[in-house]
């Protein structure tokens, strides 16, 4: 589904680019780099293209926390992983009015990582007890925190070129 021309055209309108990856190595078919501005349009596009939200989560790395959105389709083999890199004071819009399932996923990310989603109807703690807003258990401590390059797939040969590029997980593998 993600290989159709109409889908590629809609993506180009949003100035986004889909990178195909090796399914046998990674378990998903394509990945895409999102920003806080393009997130909602991309989610609307996914809803129209009949995808469902598999999960939404976060990974704490330096310098930015990475939000991961995975979409899949019921009637074809197509899994797309969207990545969004947040700065320390970054804000991210919610997609819970588009995909209602992300309501709870975003609440959980707020619980465990402290990321605030704009315009979310209800950001109270979901899983942690009340009064533990400062706990943020899944944020890593200083000595365990790794940089973006250390936890992303690197192309086997050209490792020196990636340092100059922005922290992004969309290198071709």
């Amino acid at each position: 589904m993600h290989r159709t021309e109409s889908f590629a055209q809609s993506l180009r309108k949003l100035s986004l680019e889909l990178q195909e990856v090796d399914f046998a190595q990674r378990g998903y078919h394509a990945e895409i780099l999102l920003t806080a501005d393009t997130l909602r349009d991309f989610a609307r596009l996914m809803l129209e293209a009949e995808y469902f939200l598999v999960f939404m989560s976060a990974v704490h790395m330096s310098p930015a926390i990475e939000l991961v959105y995975q979409f899949a389709q019921f009637n074809s083999q197509s899994r797309i992983l969207g990545r969004l890199f947040l700065d320390a004071d970054g804000v991210v819009p919610t997609i819970s009015d588009i995909f209602q399932g992300s309501n709870w996923h975003e609440r959980e990310v707020k619980d465990f990582f402290g990321i605030v989603f704009q315009d979310h109807p209800n950001l109270e703690p979901l899983i942690l007890p009340e009064g533990s807003e400062d706990l943020k258990p899944l944020l890593k401590e200083e000595d365990k925190l790794k940089s973006c390059q250390e936890v992303s797939w690197q192309p086997a040969e050209a490792e020196g070129e990636n340092e100059a590029a922005e922290p992004s997980g969309s290198e071709k593998s």
Binding site: R26, S57, E150, S152, Q154
Partner: peptide, 24 residues
């Protein structure tokens, strides 16, 4: 290896997906 990977199975209640980020 350093990088992320996911795997989905059909658990008794629906689709179960593990997503793991490794660091070497």
């Amino acid at each position: 290896p350093a990088g992320d990977c996911c795997f989905s199975v059909e658990a008794a209640r629906g689709e179960l997906t593990y997503y793991l980020v490794g660091d070497g």
